[in-house]
């Protein structure tokens, strides 16, 4: 654990990766706010990564443009996919997103091999272009700062959206879509917008990852990654964005510790997940807040209907 605290290559490397995972977890959780478990989240990250890498290497686009283009392309795919599939019920949406993730993986590794690199993927993805004299070398401190800044912006934005008026509507839709429709809320529109935002963030995360990691293959973006992020979100606690942050930290720590025991990693992961689901389903955050005071004031429920007998004025 010590290397994580002392400055140095290892710490920077790990913290950079934490930022990537945080962005993925927060954006997946954002999509889950409207009741959709997006199993293709890693796939959308992959689309952003490949788009950014290909544009940088083939037409020498600056990273600062391909970064956003990666997000936009993912968002567009998300728009098309979401419009078609978001009206499906929970289990069906989950299955179809699973199918999409596989389609993305297969497409990225089997088609356009010249550009996309087939199974071996793309290597030597360029770093972000130097700006204002600031250079971004691989595993450099500047790259780390970049990741932190982008991650912070993403997390803050998501937090603000969720806790604003827009977020109130999202919360209502997840509580009862039918009630919302009956008062005129176009729930599909809201679901699609949320989904597109989530995909956009997954896309820019991919673009960032591509440059920071310097190489990408389709197998980086399988449903296993989606599942890992999903576990982070649930384990940390779905109720709050801090849950996703905590969840990533916990799982990455477990991963690091388990790596020393090599083979045992998945079993620790699996058993931890089962334990959380069975004993603390609201996740770590939920567990902690259970002891905090409840938010809602409770008045006595012996009030009769009619109360003060006031009529409509």
């Amino acid at each position: 654990m010590l290397p994580l605290i002392t400055p140095g290559y290892y710490a920077i490397h790990t913290y950079t990766w934490l930022c990537i995972y945080w962005m993925l977890a927060a954006s997946l959780r954002f999509i889950m706010l409207i009741g959709a478990v997006n199993f293709a989240h890693a796939g959308f990250m992959g689309i952003g990564a490949y788009a950014s890498a290909v544009l940088m290497m083939n037409i020498h686009c600056s990273f600062w443009i391909t970064f956003f283009l990666g997000g936009i392309i993912s968002a567009l795919l998300g728009l098309g996919f979401g419009l078609i599939t978001l009206r499906l019920r929970g289990a069906y949406f989950f299955l179809v997103s699973f199918a999409l993730c596989e389609i993305i993986r297969i497409s990225l590794s089997s088609y356009w091999i010249g550009t996309l690199g087939g199974v071996t993927g793309i290597s030597n993805v360029p770093q972000p272009n130097a700006v204002l004299g600031v250079e971004f070398g691989p595993d450099s401190l500047n790259s780390f700062y970049l990741a932190v800044i982008i991650c912070s912006l993403v997390l803050i934005s998501l937090y603000v959206i969720e806790n604003g008026y827009y977020g109130k509507i999202l919360k209502s839709i997840s509580e009862s879509e039918e009630l919302c429709q009956s008062v005129g809320i176009n729930t599909i529109k809201y679901k699609v917008v949320v989904f597109v935002i989530g995909c956009f963030i997954a896309g820019i995360t991919g673009s960032l990852y591509a440059s920071l990691n310097e190489r990408i293959t389709a197998s980086d973006f399988t449903y296993s990654l989606s599942m890992f992020i999903l576990v982070c979100v649930v384990l940390g606690g779905q109720e709050h964005i801090w849950g996703s942050i905590i969840g990533v930290i916990v799982l990455v720590i477990i991963g690091e510790e388990a790596r020393s025991t090599a083979l045992f990693e998945p079993i620790i992961w699996g058993v931890s997940l089962m334990a959380v689901m069975l004993f603390a389903p609201r996740g770590i955050f939920g567990f902690v807040t259970r002891f905090a005071s409840l938010a809602m004031k409770r008045s006595s429920s012996s009030l009769k209907i009619g109360g003060d007998k006031q009529w409509l004025s």
Binding site: V37, G90, L230, P266, I267, G270, V271, M277, L278
Partner: peptide, 28 residues
Amino acid sequence: IFRPFRGNLLGGLLVSVGFGAALQTAMT
């Protein structure tokens, strides 16, 4: 494992994911 998750799609899914990962490693 599954009793508390009957009817709970996401919960049952996740617990089965955990179980699957653990089982796969156990088999290995």
